[in-house]
Amino acid sequence: MLLIHCPYCNETLPELEYAYAGEAHIARPANPSEVSDEEWAEFLFMRSNVKGIHYERWRHLHGCGRFFNAVRDTVSDKFLTTYEAGAPRPDLDTLVNTPAEGGK
């Protein structure tokens, strides 16, 4: 069972409270009518599917209901950190060397 830290509720809770919401930092095109089919395919379907450090979205479905981002190792399934949606990607070097809060 994963334990996941919600950055809004500031609590670390079982994964059953959460819904996974796919890869993070994929921005919807600003001008949809000008986007080519290739770019739509890239936005909608193509995923990096990383083996290793993965940036991803979660939703605290049975809690505050809000989306947030997480950095997780997809081999060990350990969370390195979680952070609020809209915040920039955290710096990986610092994360790997100093496990942050919620990195259980």
Partner: peptide, 13 residues
């Protein structure tokens, strides 16, 4: 499992 993972274990829930 609902999340991307390469660990050949899976979650107990």
């Amino acid at each position: 499992d609902q999340y991307v993972s390469y660990g050949q274990r899976g979650g107990l829930p």
